[in-house]
Computed example of a mutant assay.
Amino acid sequence: MTITLSRPELILKLIVEQYLLDGQPVSSKVLADNAQLAVSSATVRNTMMQLEQQGFIRSPHTSAGRIPTTSGMRLFIDKMLQLQPLTTLWASELQRKLTPQLPVSLLCQQAGQLLTNLTGFVTIISAPKAGGRMVRQIDLVRLASDRLLLVVIDEDGDILHRVLHCETAIDNNILSKVLCLLNAALGGGGQWQDGIARLGSIVRGESGVCQQLLQKVLGQLSLDELQQHQPLIFGQHQLLLTPEYQQNTALQQVMQMLEQPEGLVRLLHNITQDDTPKLLLGKESGYVELANVSVIAQRYQAQPARFIALVGPRRMNYARLIPLVEACARQLNLNLNRR
């Protein structure tokens, strides 16, 4: 689709495209030499002055070159950006790595790692078990006289398996009793969190070796439940390697935010209320820590609400990356609906 642009809009478009390409201020001479304009250098300079007065471009230092502001980038993306079709390579990678046979947690992990590998940016995925989960099966398997394997399977097929090291040997009577108590607390398709609460009450009523073993199981279940409700974050180290990070210490604040992501997760949940991709440019997020990065976010499931997001420098290739995040969300949604 051909977009008709005014001369100021075309000049802004050329400035943004060149800036996204090399990150350098764009001079009026470079623009005047562009065949798309066919105007004099004086006309270009006057138009650039007009764009600067309107807040769409700015001078980073005393040179004659200009770079786009957040407002200029927003106008470019909303009106001038033409999204590119997903590459064949990326499409095949999404289909190959994100298969419906994978349990939900592993599917989310695969999606996050794949998106980071393809882009080199940070990927954030909402907690795999954001809506709670049901226990389908729980078992204790003897490995040795003082070692047991705890196995818990939820309704999505995700498996928790942990080796429990006991201070004393566990005889068959104790093992049978503990297993019965675990099934009483967590069996029958109950909610994981409710089962943990019931198990806590049972632990307080027991004593000796039986109580010690139940406490070990309770600790593992509680830890796994906590982890399952944390967002998955991939590629933090990738951000450290970008030229922008090396030149701008403000990006170190982004790393701090990723280490304590509660505020960022709330933001992403709030903006992904429908099935269209969302793009936040720097200060648009309302967080000073994100002033120097962009975020592309997309919801991939409504109930429970789940999102996937890509975080990177402002100089992203938006034309390629927005369709990639959309396609990844679509593939996740398709696989989850097939269950």
Rank of each mutant, 00 (worst) to 15 (best):
R58V: 10
R58F: 13
S59Y: 13
S59M: 13
S59R: 15
P60V: 02
P60C: 11
P60I: 09
P60H: 10
A64D: 12
A64S: 12
G65D: 07
I67Y: 06
I67N: 10
I67C: 08
P68H: 06
P68Y: 02
T69H: 03
T70M: 11
S71G: 13
S71C: 07
S71Y: 05
G72F: 09
M73D: 03
R74Q: 01
R74Y: 07
R74M: 02
L75S: 04
F76Q: 09
I77A: 00
D78M: 07
M80E: 04
M80D: 01
L83Q: 15
L83N: 03
P85D: 10
P85G: 10
L86I: 13
L86A: 06
L89A: 12
L89Y: 14
L89M: 11
L89C: 04
L89T: 13
A91G: 02
A91T: 11
E93C: 12
Q95N: 14
R96T: 13
K97A: 12
L98V: 09
T99Y: 00
P100R: 01
P100G: 02
P100W: 02
Q101W: 05
P103N: 10
V104C: 01
S105Q: 06
L106W: 01
L107Q: 08
L107T: 06
C108D: 04
Q109K: 15
Q109R: 15
Q110E: 13
Q110R: 11
A111Y: 03
A111S: 05
A111R: 05
L114C: 04
T119V: 01
G120D: 00
F121R: 05
F121S: 03
V122I: 15
T123M: 06
T123A: 12
T123N: 03
I124L: 15
I125Q: 00
I125M: 10
I125H: 01
S126N: 05
S126G: 15
A127F: 02
A127G: 09
K129G: 04
A130E: 09
G131P: 08
G131F: 07
G132V: 05
G132M: 05
R133V: 04
R136G: 07
R136L: 08
Q137I: 06
I138P: 03
D139Q: 11
D139P: 01
A144S: 14
S145H: 13
D146N: 13
R147M: 14
L148P: 06
L150D: 00
L150C: 03
L150E: 00
L150S: 02
V151H: 00
V152F: 08
V152C: 12
V152T: 07
G157A: 00
G157V: 05
I159R: 15
I159K: 14
L160C: 07
L160F: 07
L160P: 06
H161Q: 13
V163C: 03
V163N: 06
L164F: 09
L164H: 03
C166Y: 04
C166D: 10
C166S: 12
E167Q: 11
E167V: 11
E167H: 11
T168E: 12
I170M: 08
I170R: 03
I170D: 08
N172L: 11
N172W: 04
N173Q: 12
N173C: 05
I174C: 13
I174V: 15
I174F: 04
S176M: 07
S176I: 00
K177I: 10
V178P: 06
